[in-house]
Each structure stands twice: as structure tokens, then as C-alpha cells.
Amino acid sequence: MYEILKAEMLAENIWLMDVKAPRVAGSCMPGQFVIIKIDEKGERVPLTICDYDRNAGTVTIVFQSVGASTARMSKLKKGDAFRDFVGPLGQPSELCKESINELKNKKILFVAGGVGTAPVYPQVKWLKENGINADVIVGAKTQSLLILEDEMKAVAGNLYITTDDGSYMRKGMVTEVIKDLVQNEGHKYDVCIAIGPMIMMKFVCLLTKELGLPTVVSLNPIMVDGTGMCGACRVTVDGVVKFACVDGPEFDGHKVDFDQAMKRQQLYKTEEGRAYLKKTEGDTHKGNCSNA
């Protein structure tokens, strides 16, 4: 069992938890993910690592309640435990593989959307710890859904916050902020790392391609085992089929087939939603909703 040492609601439907998992905490790097299973009947839920403390042996995760298992996970309190917590999975962020001196000569822009702010955080923090200040754009639907603002402020160079509805700081999509920074304010970046909803990453990539700004994205397709065995997470990158769990989760954003990836995500989302509805509302959703 993996004990929960802290459980906190960051925003509506978004939770942060510190979990005691010494093996994972001892070996994980920014960009990698874990798989969590609440109990015997739960799903294996993949989540990108948000933070880790090697000495305390803890790993921080942030998740949104979207399906049957994450809804049950959100009910857990400090002192409860997950049955299974495995990782780290996937490749560490490309950044961690470059030499610090090389990185120091680079201007790095992070673009975080919604709950994607969580996996961006450890990368920015890791850079800060190595003496590098990266700029960060954080986008949220509305102010109440903004997460990790103070934490991010403490590690980012410049932090730009935007909300879709203009309820806090700038108004509009993250892509508009990128345009502003690069085209109007004269910022020059060597690399962009975008993590958020698939649709956001798609539009960020369309824009950065135009701007000639190399962009890395972190994909979050549905997985089962997370070790390369099932192939559920396959994505097409530059015309080649890759498994996000072993080859990723980070890929060259300009080469990812986002339309296909979004369709594939749909399959499991509706299936999972269906399993949840069936449980909460009985057998009313047994029909072929997923084919609609």
C-alpha cells in the first residue's frame, strides 16, 4: 500500500496528493509518469509526476476527476492509501538529457494548459535548481480553475497567466500569449514545451510551426499497463507508430498526428464515461452511446 501524506483540492475537480513511494521517488525525473490503482477494482490510471522528494520518499501527483476511478480517488484523504503506485514510466524530459551549459544558452518557453500545469511544474523547477530561468505561460478556463500559481511563480522566470474568460490576468487562449510575446514583445525562444489538453497542444504546435519555434509536447493517451505491453497508447509521430508509454510521453509536437490522437482518446473517454454512468445511473447507458 502507498500512503497518502497530503491531499488537497487545488481547484474544482482538481486534486493534489503527496504519496509515499520510495522506489519511484528515488529514481524519477521530470517528464516521467506513474500509474496508480486505487484498489482491487480500480483502473490503472496514468498520471504525470508533478513533484518528488527523494529524501522523504514521496511523489506528488495532480489529477482531475474525469472517470470512475479518478472520481473514487478524489474521495481519499490524508492517511488513506493507494493499493498500487508504480513508476517511473516513460522517458525523462529531453531537457534533463542536455548539458546544463547548453541549456543555459537557451531561451525556453513553457506553455501549460489546465491540469497540464502540474507536469510542467517539475521541469521548470528542475531548471531553476540548475540555475536556469524559463518563461512560463499558464492558461486556465477561468480563475477558479487555475492551479499551482504560487508554486510556479517561485520557479519561473516570467510567468504569464491567461484565462479564457478574462476573469484573471490576461484574457484569451495561450496561443494569443505566445503570439504577443514573440511577435509584439520581441521575445526570442529556442524551444517551447507545451503540456495540456490535446486540442491546446495541437493549436500551440500549429502556431509555433509558423513561428519556426521547435516544440515538445507531452501526450496523455489512455494506457493499460504503461510498460509497452498493450499498445493502447500508440500515436503516429512523423508517420511512424510510437508507444507513448515507452517512447514518450514527450514527442516533437510538429510531427504528432493530433487529429488521430484526439480521436483515439475519444474511444476510451466515452468507454470510461460509460462505465461511470452505468455505475451511477444503472443500466441506462448500456446502448451503443460510444458509436454516436
Binding site: M229, T236, V241, R264
Partner: peptide, 18 residues
């Protein structure tokens, strides 16, 4: 280990599983 696919068109469609 890793499941093989055929490499034919349409293999990433929803409803194709290993």
C-alpha cells in the same frame, strides 16, 4: 513485450486493439 501491428492503413482507428 511490445505487440506487433501489420502496418496497414487504418490500423490506428478506434476499434483496433492488440
Amino acid at each position: 513485450g511490445l505487440p506487433k501491428f501489420m502496418g496497414i492503413p487504418g490500423e490506428q482507428a478506434n476499434g483496433v486493439f492488440s
